[in-house]
Design a protein around this nucleic acid. Structure first.
Length: 298
DNA sequence: GTAATTTGACCCGA
DNA sequence: TCGGGTCAAATTAC
């Protein structure tokens, strides 16, 4: 039988198909979560359970995708874990500067403990981020933006993320978000609202960009915007779409969305159970629609 | 005045 | 040597 000769091809094909399917499932689950969570009663155990289950599903799919893309599912010649690979790099002749003191006090390059995800909503991740740099990348159509947790100073949280829009002009645009280091900061107000920050194009020489993010706010008065200096509009929780609007997809991009007062209806999904919410909070088609109208992403 | 963003410079690592 | 990650002064917004 000729099946032996094509076995590897079939496996590779299945591998790609599996990635696609999991990816799609992940996107659908994020959208389902956005619809489901606001519908549940605030503060109820059911809400927490639902949120937990959704997050676990998303975490599983993220892990599965990561492993499939790494080739660590068995198809790859290497079966090293992420940590194994990191150790190979940093135990080599070149020692990571993470392990050395720097006399000038500059922050050392981080390469440990990072995990990439692909998402259409790079800032919708439940954490507050402050942009600290932007670079044009060789052979990349779009600049790369660097963010660190806003609690990096006061709480010493070392979480960072790098957002790079994919070159392909897909609709919606896809972003590779590489998170580094786990959040060690504490968000104390677990009943705080969603805050989605929308930002139109800047006049950067690097090209126009806009940003938005879903933030977990210590208090409504401490909203952090990614592009505050550009005088951007802010989408806060009470501007989030209703479930009907989410489902119908009829929201006009330039039209104010949602119903006032939704903040109070947002359930407590940011309890300590959800401290890892950051990398999980992906897309909501509705907010994307609004952003697209304002200009290019990122 | 304070806080966030921008952006050129600096530095590390491949 | 060069690409990419981070710093920090300048700028901007509130």
């Amino acid at each position: 039988m000729k099946q032996t000769s094509s076995t590897s091809e079939l496996l590779a094909c299945d591998h790609e198909a599996a990635i696609k399917e999991i990816d799609r499932g992940h996107e659908l689950m994020t959208q389902l979560r956005a619809i489901l969570i606001p519908l549940l009663p605030a503060g109820g155990g059911l809400t927490e359970l639902a949120g937990y289950l959704v997050e676990e599903i998303l975490k599983s799919s993220t892990m599965a995708l990561s492993r499939l893309r790494d080739g660590s599912c068995g198809l790859s010649a290497s079966s090293d874990s992420d940590d194994d690979r990191r150790n190979k790099v940093f135990d080599g002749k070149r020692k990571s500067t993470d392990e050395r003191e720097r006399p000038d006090g500059r922050r050392r390059r981080k390469q440990l403990d990072s995990w990439p995800i692909v998402t259409s909503v790079p800032h919708y991740d439940g954490h507050q981020w402050r942009k600290y740099g932007q670079k044009t990348i060789n052979n990349a159509k779009y600049p790369r933006s660097y963010y660190r947790c806003t609690n990096s100073k006061d709480q010493g949280c070392q979480a960072t993320k790098v957002v790079q829009q994919e070159d392909s002009d897909s609709d919606p645009p896809k972003f590779i978000v590489t998170y580094s280091m786990q959040h060690t900061c504490k968000n104390v107000d677990i009943n705080s609202p969603f805050v989605v920050d929308s930002a139109p194009s800047s006049t950067s020489l690097l090209g126009s960009e806009s940003e938005y993010s879903l933030c977990h706010q210590p208090s409504p008065s401490s909203i952090v915007t990614e592009n505050q200096s550009q005088g951007n509009s802010l989408l806060i929780a009470d501007e989030l779409p209703t479930d009907h609007e989410l489902l119908s997809g009829l929201l006009a991009p330039a039209t104010p969305i949602g119903t006032p007062g939704l903040v109070d209806e947002i359930p407590n999904i940011f309890s300590p159970l959800y401290t890892d919410w950051g990398m999980m909070m992906d897309g909501v088609e509705l907010t994307e629609a609004k952003i697209y109208e304002k200009g290019s992403f990122y």
